Amino acid sequence: MSGDDLGQMAYLIMLLVFLGFWFVGSNRQRLGKTMQQAAIWALIFVGAIAAVGLWDDIRSTVTPLQTVMSDEGRIELPRGQDGHFRATLEINGTRVSFIVDTGASDMVLSKQDATRAGLDPDNLPFFGRAMTANGPVATAPVRLDEVVFGGYVDTNVPASVNGGDMSGSLLGMTYLQRFEQITIAGNKLILTR
């Protein structure tokens, strides 16, 4: 810590001590009630910190995850709160989250996901074109060595890397057509092979 940091810390401690003395002095008549309210606020503060720290665990418990029923040959994907179906696949040994998009022709990786999967987007030939809601974007065709989804392993899978900004990857029809049946029942997308 530098001298400035120590000075700021000393100032804050003195300020807190002053405020504490003022608070206790001004509420001497109702000290028991004041301490009870201070304890309640302290518990609320600690609870908020715990909720922020445990948010990932809470979210994974509340939000249903994809289910693989290998003996029945199907994968069930729950509908997310945003209305989309999401799937987690392993691309070349790396877990990648996809939005299932039956309107997309290809399996499309974002540049970030492509990099994580061992591809080098900076050295790919972006000569393909795809039409998106935001207009045309350049794409680069690639072949993925291994794609694992549930218990299914596919090799030499065709895909594209999006040359534009993309918040996530899309699981399109070139991969989804490997399944015999795609069914939406209630809030689940069921893929059967």
Rank of each mutant, 00 (worst) to 15 (best):
E146L: 07
V157S: 01
Q112I: 08
A140T: 08
T132D: 10
R116S: 10
Q66K: 05
G83C: 04
L16W: 02
I99N: 12
L16A: 09
I75R: 03
F126N: 06
Q29F: 08
A185F: 01
K111V: 06
L43V: 12
T67H: 03
V161D: 11
Q81E: 14
R95P: 07
M69G: 00
I99F: 03
S97Y: 03
G83D: 01
S60L: 09
A48P: 06
G164N: 14
I91W: 02
V17H: 02
D57N: 08
L15R: 12
P125W: 03
R74S: 11
T132N: 07
A130G: 13
Q36V: 10
G151R: 07
V148E: 04
F23P: 01
N123I: 00
G7N: 13
V96S: 06
R74C: 06
A38R: 01
Q112L: 12
D101C: 05
V161W: 04
D113A: 11
D56P: 14
R30M: 10
R59V: 12
E180L: 06
A140M: 02
R129G: 05
T94G: 02
I49P: 00
Y11V: 12
Q8C: 03
Q81D: 12
Y152I: 14
V142Y: 06
D122T: 14
G150I: 07
T63H: 08
V142Q: 05
A130M: 11
T192K: 08
R86F: 13
G186E: 09
R178M: 13
D4E: 15
L191G: 07
P136R: 00
W22D: 10
A185E: 14
T174E: 10
F21D: 11
L170D: 08
R28D: 12
E76H: 02
G163P: 13
T174I: 00
R143Y: 06
A42Y: 06
V52Y: 14
G151V: 04
P121S: 10
G135N: 09
Q66G: 13
F126P: 10
V153P: 05
P141E: 14
G73T: 06
T63D: 15
L170H: 04
G135M: 12
G151T: 09
N156D: 15
W41S: 12
S105E: 15
Q181H: 04
G163Y: 03
D82Y: 02
G25I: 03
R116A: 11
I75H: 02
L124E: 15
Q66P: 15
G103S: 10
L6C: 00
D4M: 05
G168Y: 07
T183Y: 00
P158C: 01
P78E: 06
S167M: 13
V153W: 01
V68E: 13
T63M: 12
D82T: 09
D113K: 03
T67M: 09
I190C: 07
G3W: 11
L119A: 06
Y11K: 10
A104W: 03
T63N: 15
L19I: 01
N156T: 00
V157F: 01
D145K: 11
Q36M: 10
Q66F: 06
I91V: 15
L171W: 08
D56A: 13
S97N: 14
Q36E: 11
Q8E: 11
G128V: 09
T115S: 07
F21E: 08
Q29L: 04
P136I: 05
G73H: 08
G7W: 00
F127E: 15
I91G: 07
Y175N: 08
D57M: 09
Y175H: 14
R79T: 03
T61N: 03
